[in-house]
């Protein structure tokens, strides 16, 4: 286990969260990133606040139990937003890998020690878990978008046929999701 490294991370948690958030919003153009960082009202800035909150949750799990539900709760809002923005899957998930670099830079000295380096490998596996879950959520959201497109089309045409009397009465044949 990575107890020593985890306790180091916990001590510097605020710095790590701040750096990670900054690097996460860098996926957006400069003017947007400035807005996402500066506007603190969660209703005026849902992307910034969901991202910040998600990162906090993921940090809890990184140094905690790695509970699948909690990881999903942290990742889902961020990936759900990115799945409908102009971000490619790679750009949408880059922020997860960025955490490795942030930790490497922050603990450059400590990681010289063999034991610490070994602990860092364990931690990297946790970050990889985030990334894999992130890909799944992103894909799930993309599929949902396609479902929604198809459902709107289906509802419009099927119900039009039904109202026009082109569908046999008394049959429960409306397509269900």
């Amino acid at each position: 286990m990575a107890e020593a490294l985890i306790s180091l991370i916990q001590k510097k948690r605020a710095t790590i969260v701040s750096k990670w958030f900054d690097s996460t919003v860098q996926a957006y153009p400069h003017d947007t990133a400035v807005f996402l960082k500066s506007q603190k009202d969660q209703f005026a800035n849902p992307v910034g606040s969901s991202t910040r909150q998600g990162i906090e949750t993921l940090m809890d799990q990184l140094v905690g139990e790695m509970a699948p539900d909690a990881i999903k709760a942290g990742l889902d809002p961020i990936m759900r937003i990115r799945a409908v923005q102009s971000l490619s899957p790679a750009r949408a998930t880059t922020f997860i890998f960025a955490l490795k670099q942030i930790l490497r830079e922050l603990f450059r000295k400590e990681l010289q020690e063999a034991d610490m380096a070994r602990q860092f490998f364990d931690l990297e596996a946790r970050i990889d878990r985030f990334a894999l879950d992130g890909f799944d959520i992103y894909m799930g959201c993309r599929e949902r978008v396609l479902d929604l497109k198809a459902n709107e089309m289906r509802n419009r045409t099927f119900r039009a046929f039904k109202r026009a009397g082109l569908v046999a009465e008394g049959t429960d044949n409306e397509p269900k999701e």
Binding site: P29, H30, T32, L36, N45, V47, Q85
Partner: peptide, 17 residues
């Protein structure tokens, strides 16, 4: 007005300011 548009807030595209 820059950060008041739902399309800017949601898409993150500065040209939607």
């Amino acid at each position: 007005c820059a950060d008041k548009c739902h399309y800017f807030i949601g898409t993150g595209d500065p040209k939607n300011m």
